[in-house]
Amino acid sequence: MWDTTSRTFRLLELLQRNGFMATERLAGDLGVTTRTVRRDVARLRDLGYPVDTRLGVDGGYSIEPGAVLPPIHLTTEEALACALALRRWQDDVDGTLAAGSLGKIVASLPPRARWIVDAVAAVTLDTPVDVLEPIDHPTVDIALLGDLARTCLVRRRVGFAYTGRDGTSTPRRVDPRRLVNTARRWYLVAFDLDADAWRTFRVDRITGFAATELPTRERPLPDPDVEGWVTRQLTVGWQQVTGTVRVHAPIEAVRRWVAPAWGSVEAVSPEVTVVRAGADSHDAIARWLLLVQADVEVIEPDGLRAAFGRVAEQAGRASESSPANPPPVTGAV
């Protein structure tokens, strides 16, 4: 049996999670009568929660959309999920903003839930050994991100200054359509009115944002697969050189090493996979493909063959080195 307070917060949780719910369904989920549901809704309203009522035979309740809510009721698991997400989010936005949000969530929790969140934070280390971090990882203005998202939704033309790779800032007039988060960065997909073409813009390079009252023109997106299109656009800048190799391994074993931004894989037999790869140098491609731990045949170009030779020479020199007084080995075993 629920006590009155627990049941009322359980009702709030159901409405926040599901949106509109019929009175009969609420009564069934809470194990009470419809009259008790109406009394609990009245309690929520007394606490300041804007609960909307739908009358009729299929009537029920919902939290009024767009309203400013009092503190949201979170379960321990939901609070922990928010805390973990905000810890990761600090890498991408203003750390002070994320830390402030996290502090408010933790402060509003009951002692038991707060203890669990604090315990996880105290004993957890973020060690991204399974990914390569970008050399530059600028934070994103969360307010700008919100403004861009709003103009995408309401279809309003915007202007801003954009700083290119060479450091030059130029004014842009665009019709924004999508935001894409990839490779630990945020990108705006927009139609550049001056270039008369679709473009991607790194959000951290946008300044002087100004929304206008002019509606955007209806245009088809450059590709129905926007994420794939953005990846291809970024690949043009990332892949300074390319190469094709034949890897003697099943495609399942090879695919995990080849992100879409860096190449493609094709199975030519159950035990052979062709990889078309790109990077900033042939040496980088060679070192990366050796991680597959399978025999590799270079199809093209000769520059990639030479790169494998240089990598092999480096490995050979490492195997032949034998210092007279090797340093002591320290660290975890």
Rank of each mutant, 00 (worst) to 15 (best):
W2A: 09
T4D: 14
S6R: 11
T8P: 00
L11G: 07
L11Y: 05
L15I: 02
L15F: 07
Q16N: 15
Q16Y: 13
R17V: 07
F20T: 00
A22F: 00
D29R: 14
G31S: 02
R38L: 06
R39N: 12
R39A: 15
A42Q: 12
R45S: 10
R45I: 08
G48S: 01
Y49I: 10
T53K: 10
V57T: 13
V57W: 10
D58F: 11
D58H: 14
S62E: 13
S62W: 05
G66Y: 02
A67L: 07
V68M: 07
P70V: 04
H73T: 13
T76G: 14
T76N: 08
E77F: 12
E78G: 06
A79N: 03
L80E: 09
L80P: 00
A81Y: 10
A81H: 08
L84P: 00
A85K: 08
L86N: 07
R88S: 15
W89K: 06
D92F: 14
A99Q: 08
K104T: 14
K104L: 15
L109C: 03
L109T: 03
P110H: 12
R112N: 12
A113G: 02
W115T: 15
W115F: 15
V117W: 04
V117A: 09
V120Y: 06
T124R: 13
L125I: 14
V129N: 09
P134W: 04
I135C: 02
A143M: 09
D147I: 02
C152K: 06
V154K: 10
R157T: 15
V158A: 09
T163D: 06
G164N: 08
G167M: 10
G167Y: 10
G167I: 05
P171Q: 10
R178A: 13
R178T: 06
R178I: 05
L179H: 01
V180R: 02
V180T: 02
N181D: 13
T182C: 02
R185C: 02
L188A: 02
V189W: 06
D192N: 05
A195S: 05
W198A: 03
T212Y: 00
T212A: 08
E213P: 00
P215D: 13
R217F: 12
P220D: 12
D225I: 03
V226N: 01
V230H: 04
T231A: 05
Q233V: 10
V236N: 03
G237L: 09
W238F: 15
T242K: 07
E252D: 13
R255W: 01
V258T: 01
A261N: 09
S264H: 06
S264V: 07
V274A: 03
A277T: 09
A279D: 13
S281D: 04
D283H: 13
A284Q: 14
W288A: 07
L291Y: 08
Q293C: 13
A294S: 13
D295T: 13
E297A: 11
V298Y: 07
E300G: 11
P301H: 01
L304M: 07
G309Y: 03
G309E: 14
R310M: 10
A312I: 12
A312N: 08
A312M: 09
A318H: 08
A318L: 15
E320Q: 14
P323D: 04
A324L: 15
P328I: 09
T330I: 12
T330W: 11
